[in-house]
Design a binder for these strands. Structure first.
Lengths: 220, 220, 220, 220
DNA sequence: TATGAATGAGCATTCATTCAT
DNA sequence: CATGAATGAATGCTCATTCAT
């Protein structure tokens, strides 16, 4: 079990083995329930070596978050052609996102569940990556508006909210797709595009949904 | 800082005090980092009494999840008038949801973060409540389709995915609204309605977004 | 489960119910593993009442030891006719002893196991009862010598040792009989009489077993 | 008072130190009253190390029982010459037994009191050792019968009962000798040989003690 | 580079015991 | 006579972390 116990490996390799083991353990057991003992054993090294290379449980977890965040954003970036139309970029990015999360459930658990749940400094670390994605989506929304030859008078915060909503929907669908047998990444992406893109289009076309003038009273 | 130390209260009252303290502690520290000592102190009682009434940390946490889940669904239900139009129901429900989560950040953390992160039996407990909400949203989507006199040929799973996406977007916006100063519940709800409702309308109007290069199979 | 919960009973009755419950619990769970909670519940009363009547766990246990010790010695005494011949008295006493221990396994456990195992003041309490039995047996041995018209030049300590051995053998056979299905009290008593009486007779007849003159060397 | 606090010892050595401390503590305080803290302190190590090496209080106690059982049977075996006559073997074995128990009072307490008092799995562990000794004594009784050229028609269970009685008498005398100042092992052994051997001889010689009023069925 | 040996500190849980009514 | 409410004090066990080699 765990990596084959080979002696005297270069540091970089050893570190990756440790991070592999850590992501797996953190993803499955959770940050607090994961023990350094288990991680070291799974990595096939002694505990002091883990501390020598990664310093502390906190640092190790942070390193996991960073590595998985980098891997996720890289995957999405790799799936997107910057010259494509905005909707095509979103479509490609979503498929890359769903594919990556489906193939890296432990990494996704680390980023989406563990890092957000266990306070600082982890939450910020994960939030930074999420902000990057939200920013990317924000750009796509603005680009779509430009493509539609509509200089959107959407206030900045409204666009930010839309991007948040879209990213939140995507995260939710990722979990749903992973939990529902038979749902493909393409299907999840299509569901979200259908859901979101027309709404965005209407918005930018100046046809927003309008709230009713009266607030409905409880048991009124 | 905890509850005023009044002696000799009836069990039911003490139990609520304990649950208050527990939700606060679990919500802020996280399930594992929260210590029974801290909860007892915050509740103004001794640890043995917590165990006498709530049995174990697991049971205590489960009780928190159940109470907060009940409170959240009750709040949403109370905000919705079942005879209203579907969009109105969604609008009212969302505002109630954003209001409740903004006013109960610890409860929301327990439900949305802690319960999902720390495995069984907590995850199932929270999933049950979420499923209830998703089911509610699903009904609204179908009702909207009926109201539009369009018996949608949307496959069941597609509708489920849409509801998931909508709920995920709402959850995400709740966090965003809580973290962004100055964002009101009404604003968050309006953002989501704008984002979602037109998209749903187009979908049900038979005008889905079609993936490039491929013919998308849904109602294609 | 436990005694039927009747209110307002005279103190003496309640105390016996508590002692019944305590003997059963101490006998089965052991002194330390038995909890006052369990005893109170089994007795059908509240814990404070147990403390009101019996003071403390220690006192409660001590009371159990005394009651069971009294019951055991009473049973043996009741089985013996003081006018009988010495061997007849031993025979009757043994049968009474085996019968009583077989019918009161919890009491026997309290006396033979629990009391001796958990230090002072319990060990002394049980030792007192045992000393009584040993004294009784000692008298029988001396009586047997008189009956054989032999003023035994057995030193006092030798007789004490013989009585100890006999009592120890009896205790051991009680456990053996209780653990071996189908062994009757009569059978156990007969086994012990056969084993012991002839040996005593020979002893008193001046034909003791004589140790070999040399000490056998290990692996010599 | 504990072992001299020497740092960095090989595991095997430390384990023995821990077992020494544990036997002493369990023997004197009893299984339940002994705390792991006390054992660790007496062993001169920290508690985590005790858990690292011995796993749990249960495992630690079991290890104690096994070690002490092995030591006791080894001591008896070492004292007995298998080619000697049966009575000589018994005599030598008894002296070894009394000597060992006198020199290892804590171990004897663990085996004879604690292990039997605290339920499974400890009772079985101690019972296994005791069964070994009973079997040895049983063999000696049968050997004695052969040596007397008397194929005894003693039923198997009768012999088992005799062995039980003899072992029980020995256990009792061990406690008595330890508690009575000035009683040597040789004296205790002689007392028991006197008590037992002639009785056995008579039995095998077909002269059992017969119960009054009834015809005793064994070889009657 | 790598590890066996070792620990300080903390945590969930339980229990005998006592008030206030 | 009787009890619901409450707690101080342990106890078994685990974990992140470090030192000596």
């Amino acid at each position: 079990m765990g990596a084959v116990k080979t002696k005297r490996m270069p540091r970089a390799v050893r570190e990756q083995q440790m991070l592999d083991a850590a992501v797996r353990t953190f993803g499955q057991r959770g940050y607090m329930a994961a023990s350094m003992d288990e991680i070291a054993e799974l990595a096939g090294v002694s505990k002091p070596l883990v501390y020598l290379y990664l310093n502390s449980k906190e640092d190790l977890f942070t390193a996991c978050i960073r590595r998985e965040a980098a891997a996720l954003t890289a995957a999405v970036r790799a799936g997107v052609h910057p010259e494509s139309a905005a909707d095509r970029q979103l479509w490609d990015g979503l498929r890359a996102f769903f594919t990556h999360t489906a193939q890296n459930p432990d990494g996704w658990s680390v980023l989406h569940l563990q890092a957000r749940t266990h306070g600082e400094p982890f939450a910020s670390e994960a939030a930074a990556m999420r902000a990057e994605i939200v920013a990317f989506v924000t750009q796509l929304i603005l680009a779509a508006a430009r493509e539609a030859h509509r200089d959107p008078d959407l206030p900045e915060r409204e666009v930010a909210g839309l991007a948040e909503a879209l990213v939140g929907a995507a995260e939710s669908l990722a979990d749903w797709a992973n939990a529902t047998p038979g749902v493909t990444e393409t299907e999840a992406a299509a569901t979200l595009m259908n859901f979101a893109w027309s709404g965005l289009g209407n918005l930018m076309g100046g046809r927003p949904w309008t709230p009713p003038g009266t607030t409905h009273e409880v048991s009124g």
